[in-house]
Design a protein around this nucleic acid. Structure first.
Lengths: 158, 158
DNA sequence: CGTAGAATTGCAACATTATAACTCAATCCA
DNA sequence: TGGATTGAGTTATAATGTTGCAATTCTACG
């Protein structure tokens, strides 16, 4: 990773990278990145902040897309299925996945002040999974972790 | 911990322990464990499965309590505030806290087959927090972790 | 080509989860 | 006692997410 959500950067690169990821993943899987799906992905990636499904509707409507809830939820479900976005359950919101080719864990740190979220590296969460499997004798299939607190920039301002 | 959610046990002990915890915590904090709050806590503890707020309404109604949504949400908010229950965001549900006197992390393993949830020990999650704080330079204030998979009993049946 | 089957989208209604606003009653405490 | 605070009742509504079905578009195959 060349930067994280809390480091200033040219955000167009993030969007471009996400779209390229999506295109190659869809090609690989024979899935169709239709206009509405691509646009939803772009909108989700328009910031590093989790975005609610209903927040997308006005923009889609203004751009001439159908904007009923099922439309946006179907696009999000499609992107979730490919691992291109994650759902942040504690916020009922969605965010782009920065590591769509690796595991399916959905692990984020979310700044409570600026709202930006940063996906955690796999190495940071695998140890927990392994330890829980050992301690409880269970098989972990899916991991959701949502840490909240203050990011470096917001820490400075306090 | 003498047992976990996946080990057969006399569940009355769990409920009794939860109520005792609640009573002493309320006494300590000068908070009032009113009938409806106590009943909601009992109902949440009636199994080791996360329970939805709306699932509680019929039972409360049958017992003569007011059963409009605000009533149950207020009771749950009270219990959440004292750390006596946790919210499972991925399920929009609530579950009793087995360690109300320690930290405020809300970390669970949830069996996708039988639905029972087991709170994780603090030691199992603190390492992740520490590692994220180091890696990102952030300050973690709150942790939510929801692992899904198969518990020991359900593993055997597959 | 052209058509059958599959995938996608449009659309309307509805389900679920949670909160707001205002009132009245109970409790606390000086 | 009496004023302040907290809790509960009530109604309405907001926010989030889903179902079901018809219409359309795409794709693959003969």
């Amino acid at each position: 990773m060349t930067h994280d959500a809390y480091t200033p950067h040219n955000h167009h690169h993030c969007i471009d990278a996400a779209l390229n990821n999506a295109r190659s993943l869809c090609a690989e899987q024979g899935a169709r990145l239709t206009p509405i799906r691509q646009r939803v992905l772009e909108l989700v990636w328009s910031s590093h902040k989790p975005v609610g499904a209903y927040d997308l509707l006005p923009t889609l409507a203004a751009e001439g897309f159908n904007s009923a809830p099922p439309t946006v939820y179907r696009a999000l479900d499609f992107l979730l299925g490919l691992g291109l976005v994650h759902r942040i359950s504690t916020l009922n919101a969605f965010i782009g996945c920065s590591q769509p080719n690796t595991d399916h864990a959905s692990c984020f740190f979310i700044c409570r002040d600026c709202g930006k979220a940063q996906e955690l590296a796999a190495s940071e969460v695998q140890a927990l999974t392994a330890q829980v499997e050992r301690a409880l004798g269970v098989k972990v299939e899916q991991q959701t972790t949502e840490l909240t607190g203050l990011c470096p920039a917001c820490l400075e301002q306090h």
